Amino acid sequence: MAGPVLPYGRQTIEDDDIAAVVEALRADFLTTGPTVEAFETAFAETVGARHAVACANGTAALHLAMLALDVQPGEVVIAPSITFLATANCARYVGAEVVFADVDPLSGLMTPQTLAEALARVSGRKLRAVLPVHLRGDAADLPGLAALANDAGAVLVEDAPHALGTTMTYGNVAERVGDARHSAMATFSFHPVKTIATGEGGMVTTNDAALADRLRTMRSHGMIRPEGADPWWYEMPEPGFNYRLPDILCALGLSQLAKLPRFAARRRALAKAYDAALAPLAPMVRIAARPAWSDPVLHLMCVLIDFQAAGLSRRQVVERLREYGVGTQVHYIPVHRQPYYRERYGELELPGAEGWYAHCLSLPLYPGMADGDVQKVADALKAVLGV
Rank of each mutant, 00 (worst) to 15 (best):
A2T: 15
V5P: 12
V5M: 07
Y8H: 09
I13Q: 00
D16T: 15
L25H: 13
F29I: 08
T31V: 15
P34E: 00
A44H: 03
T46N: 02
G48T: 06
A52K: 04
L67Y: 11
I78C: 02
F84N: 11
L85M: 07
A86S: 14
N89Q: 12
F100M: 10
V103M: 06
L106M: 13
G108M: 05
L109Q: 09
T111H: 05
P112R: 10
T114L: 03
R121W: 02
V130H: 01
V133Y: 03
G137F: 01
A140V: 15
L142Y: 15
P143N: 09
G144C: 08
A147W: 11
A149M: 04
A152V: 08
E158D: 13
H162F: 15
Y170N: 15
G178E: 08
D179R: 03
S189F: 02
F190D: 00
H191M: 12
P192C: 04
P192G: 05
V193T: 12
G199V: 14
G201C: 06
G202E: 10
G202S: 12
V204R: 00
D208A: 03
A212N: 06
A212M: 06
T217H: 03
A229L: 08
A229M: 08
D230A: 15
R244D: 15
L252F: 10
G253E: 01
L254Y: 06
Q256C: 02
Q256D: 01
L260W: 04
R262W: 12
A264V: 03
R268P: 08
K272P: 09
D275Q: 13
A279M: 07
A282W: 11
P283L: 05
V285K: 05
I287K: 03
R290N: 11
A292V: 14
P296N: 00
L298Y: 14
M301H: 08
C302P: 10
F307G: 06
Q308W: 10
Q316V: 11
R322L: 12
E323D: 13
V326T: 04
I333Y: 12
V335A: 02
H336W: 04
R337V: 06
Q338S: 08
L348E: 05
E354G: 05
L365A: 02
L365I: 07
D371C: 05
D373Y: 01
V374S: 03
A380G: 14
L381M: 09
K382I: 02
V387K: 07
